[in-house]
Simulated assay, not measured.
Amino acid sequence: MDRIAMADTNRQFVIAELPKGKLGPEHFRMIESGVPSPSDGQVLVRVRYFALDAAMRAWMLGPTYRAALTAGQMMAGTALAEVVHSKAAGLVVGDLVFGETGWQEYSVLSAQQLTKLPQADPVTYLLNVYGTAGLTAYFGLLEVGKVENGDTVIVSAAAGAVGSIVGQIAKIKGCRVVGIAGGKAKCDMLTVDLGFDAAVDYKAGPLFPAVQAASNGGVDVYFDNVGGDFFEAVLFNMKQGGRLVACGAVSAYDTDPSKAPQAVRGVPAWFTARRLTLRGFIVSDFYAGGARERAIAELRGWVESGQLKVREDIVDGFENLPAALIGLLAGNNIGKRLVRAA
Rank of each mutant, 00 (worst) to 15 (best):
G205H: 04
P257F: 03
D8K: 15
Y202H: 06
L190M: 00
V178N: 04
V144K: 07
S37E: 14
V155E: 04
A81K: 05
R300N: 11
Y130R: 07
P19Q: 03
Y125L: 07
P206K: 03
V147P: 07
S37A: 12
L276A: 14
F196Y: 02
E82H: 06
F236I: 01
F28H: 03
K87Q: 09
A330N: 12
D220T: 01
K171V: 11
G182R: 02
S258L: 14
V245S: 07
N332R: 10
W59T: 09
D220Y: 01
D254A: 08
S86R: 08
T124Q: 06
S284G: 11
P25S: 05
H85Q: 12
D197L: 02
Y65K: 01
I282Q: 02
R337C: 10
A204R: 13
A16C: 04
L299V: 05
N332F: 15
G150V: 05
G241V: 13
R340L: 08
L80N: 03
K87M: 09
N332T: 13
A199I: 00
I180T: 04
G21A: 14
F223R: 09
W302N: 01
Q240L: 15
F13H: 02
S251C: 02
F286Q: 00
D40V: 12
V155T: 04
I180S: 05
I172W: 15
Y202C: 13
D188M: 14
E32W: 05
L18V: 14
P122H: 08
P209Y: 01
E293S: 14
G327D: 13
V211E: 07
A324K: 14
R48P: 08
L329H: 04
V310D: 00
A181L: 11
V264P: 03
L109D: 12
K186E: 05
A342V: 08
C247R: 00
A342C: 15
G217H: 09
A324C: 12
C175L: 08
V315P: 00
V47D: 10
E312D: 01
G140T: 02
G195E: 09
A159G: 09
V250G: 04
K20D: 15
R11K: 08
A68N: 02
I31N: 02
Q119D: 14
N216K: 15
Q112N: 13
E304M: 15
R337Y: 13
E298R: 13
V250R: 03
V283S: 00
A249N: 14
D313M: 07
L299P: 03
E143F: 13
T136I: 00
A246Y: 13
A199Y: 00
R311E: 11
A157C: 04
F318H: 06
P209S: 00
V129M: 03
Q104I: 09
L23E: 01
S39M: 09
G163D: 01
D53R: 00
S33M: 13
G145D: 15
G134A: 10
A55F: 08
L127M: 09
V153W: 06
T115C: 15
G306E: 10
I4K: 10
V245M: 08
V47C: 15
V264I: 05
T115N: 05
V234H: 05
R294M: 12
Q73M: 05
M238C: 01
G327T: 11
S156T: 13
K22T: 11
A210H: 01
P268C: 14
G41L: 00
I282A: 03
G248N: 07
F230D: 11
G327M: 05
E17C: 14
D256L: 06
L80C: 08
V108Y: 09
